[in-house]
Nucleic acid binder design. Sequence first.
DNA 1: CGGTTATTTGACGGGTATCAAACACCGTGG
DNA 2: CCACGGTGTTTGATACCCGTCAAATAACCG
Lengths: 229, 229
Amino acid sequence: MCLLTPHDWTLIKANPLFAGMEPADIDSLINVNAVLRVPRQQALFARGDPARALFLILEGQIKLSRLSPQGDEAVVHVFRAGESFAEAAMLMGGRYPVDATAIEDSRLIAVSIERLKDRVMIKPEIAFAMLGSMAQHLHSLVSQIEQLKLMTARQRMIRFLLDEAQADSGMSRIALPHDKGLIANRLGMKPETFSRLLSQLVAHGVEVDGGIVTVRDLAHLADQLEQET
Amino acid sequence: MCLLTPHDWTLIKANPLFAGMEPADIDSLINVNAVLRVPRQQALFARGDPARALFLILEGQIKLSRLSPQGDEAVVHVFRAGESFAEAAMLMGGRYPVDATAIEDSRLIAVSIERLKDRVMIKPEIAFAMLGSMAQHLHSLVSQIEQLKLMTARQRMIRFLLDEAQADSGMSRIALPHDKGLIANRLGMKPETFSRLLSQLVAHGVEVDGGIVTVRDLAHLADQLEQET
DNA sequence: CGGTTATTTGACGGGTATCAAACACCGTGG
DNA sequence: CCACGGTGTTTGATACCCGTCAAATAACCG
């Protein structure tokens, strides 16, 4: 029931946290019983909960967010299959600093923090893998702050499309990774603004059909980053 | 010339990175020759530079920022005496992901990353100290993103004052930690906006005299967080 | 099919940015 | 000591991006 498929193993070994670990290390960290399923919309943990584990996503997507006293939500990041998160929870007085919610039916591995600590004491190399993961998260947050401070909503929107497209020139068919409202929040704007800006881009070679966005020419879209209007 | 004063040692031992280390560990990491002075306005390192060290500030302040292609600056964080930064640089392919500039004449300890790596292999506990520091930075960035996405410039301004004030009620005399323009950037607004918002607050028991801000009643100011106008 | 949740569209207002100019502050050099 | 240029700060007028409120429409799910 909680078996790991070959594809799961591919993800595990590709993740920077586990890459380089020997099978014995991985086995010792991954308790087969610790594979859990979280249905769409359900919380995985809440801000302030005691942090007992960090997670690797096998399937689905997990949203990390903060809630204001008034109930407004700020999405900090959305993690997808193959990514790990909550490494930092190990410290911070053992409390999660954000809410985590599944935005798709998800399957995750929970890695016990206690066990991981033990493991680090035995094999310090593992600590570098953790530092590496955290450094990447840090870098991603820094970029997000840069964008929020320096770019207009329109520019962030374009940048998002360019990031989602694999290539950097030519045509691209992009499947929006989640609800438009959620993407809007990630980009620091309201859903209405997102909708309007996206329809503006139709004038610049962008077609929208539900959750599928087709960009006629990525390079031309990139030019729009500096244009006004 | 590059001697460490007793006060320096106080800072070192109070820093989470070194707290808990034995003197021998600290000595092995801190090369006395590695104390450096950086005059105000001078760059410590630039984005993309190979990362050879992380730093502990003995005196002064260091600004971490990103520059846009157009030359606009986004201040990511300002570190003060006693704080360490650039832990993450150890990873990230050995490149600093931001620019670092002294905004006051500063004195710092440079901790060799190579030496630190060796040390972690010998004493894995040290890795936890690093993870702890990085977790704190992560948390601070998450809070910053939350504020940029959820609060108006006015609310960020008030929050800043409340954070700078030590207490949370009663009267407080606050010395602004740096130029108003720089604070404005930290808060994600233009200097003009900062100036205007600050003068608005005069109507709510805030007095401004150069770089000294006096708040008549912190609790009353905190109320303004929810008020409009 | 009905009810809920997303998304779009419109009208409107306000919060910030922008542009511009006056002013204060500060270290330098005459 | 004062003149002076450079930087930081304030203030004003104006523009516009984006948020808000509201309603219509579309998509979704049981």
